[in-house]
């Protein structure tokens, strides 16, 4: 039984990371109707920024942390300008291909600069963790879960209770109407990319001490985040979070009880199962056919 709790704890921890990336995914999808295939690289780039600031330059951890998040804001803006914005009037196919190109470009440029050796990043907190009964609560996992809760709460508040949040929602629902009201649509999309890059980056920094920092971490995380959004119901914010957590748990149990090498495969099996049997996800489409 303790084993179950232990795995549940770890699953929710890793699932939180997927949920954060999935959240960024959904926000960009809702604002631009584009699936960003370079979403995982947001996490990877942030983790490497952490390596640069805190390991290579040996700057204090928290300063590195803030600098990395700031770097991600800039990266998100550049990403929008280089990969999405010039193609905004084209169909989804060129945009998908362009984001895939960006994903390959960024991960392999990093490989060229840093080589294939995974980098190690120290945990954010000094103390390792503690026991409740025989269940060991690792501090890094606790931190991930805690920050995810805070961030989700912040995002809820931001979208439901600020005017800027409402403007972002309006932009994602009807761009032409939004511009008629004087909402600066291009700026709203830019903000979406910046925010999405920052939460993706945060997820990357948080998970780095657990997974190692490697150029492959982006691709793996992105695919799982996508699977999470399908499980939850595509385009749904709450669905992305639930889907992410569910996937983390499934994967952790799968690895413990079925097979370790195929750990990354479970996500895809769940994904395919959902696509075949319940493509609208757990929550389905929230806004029905529009008049």
């Amino acid at each position: 039984m303790d084993m179950v709790f232990q795995l549940l704890f770890q699953g929710i921890g890793i699932g939180s990371v997927y949920a954060l990336v999935a959240l960024g995914f959904v926000l960009i999808f809702r604002a631009t109707n584009v699936v960003n295939f370079a979403q995982g690289e947001f996490s990877m780039v942030a983790a490497f920024l952490m390596v640069i600031f805190s390991v290579d330059l040996e700057w204090p951890y928290w300063i590195s942390f803030l600098l990395s998040l700031g770097g991600m804001a800039i990266y998100g803006a550049l990403f929008n300008l280089g990969v999405y914005f010039p193609l905004r009037h084209r169909t989804y196919l060129p945009v998908i291909i362009s984001t895939i190109g960006a994903s390959i470009l960024v991960s392999n440029s990093t490989l060229a600069l840093y080589g294939p050796q995974p980098q190690v990043l120290q945990p954010l907190l000094d103390f390792p963790g503690f026991n409740i009964g025989t269940v060991y609560l690792d501090a890094q996992y606790l931190l991930i879960i805690g920050l995810t809760v805070v961030l989700v709460a912040f995002q809820y508040w931001f979208f439901e209770h600020t005017l800027l949040g409402k403007k972002l929602q309006a932009t994602s629902q009807d761009k032409e109407m939004a511009s008629l009201l004087g909402i600066p649509v291009a700026t709203m999309i830019m903000l979406t990319f910046v925010y999405s890059a920052m939460i993706g980056g945060l997820a990357g920094i948080l998970v780095a001490p657990i997974l190692f920092v490697s150029i492959h971490m982006g691709g793996t995380i992105a695919l799982k985040a996508f699977a999470a959004t399908i499980i939850g119901g595509f385009g749904d914010v709450a669905g992305a979070i639930i889907g992410g957590l569910a996937l983390g748990v499934i994967e952790t149990f799968g690895a413990a009880y079925v097979s370790v090498p195929y750990k990354d495969g479970f996500a895809f099996l769940v994904l395919v199962a959902f696509l075949v049997f319940r493509p609208q996800g757990i929550f389905g489409e929230r806004v029905a056919e529009k008049a």
Binding site: L163, K166, Q169, Q173, M177, L181
Partner: peptide, 24 residues
Amino acid sequence: HVPEGRRVFPGLTAHENIMLGASN
């Protein structure tokens, strides 16, 4: 401009829709 077809934001409430009218 109040366009043809009303173009109310489907996922926002009536009140929120109206508030956004002041975005200019």
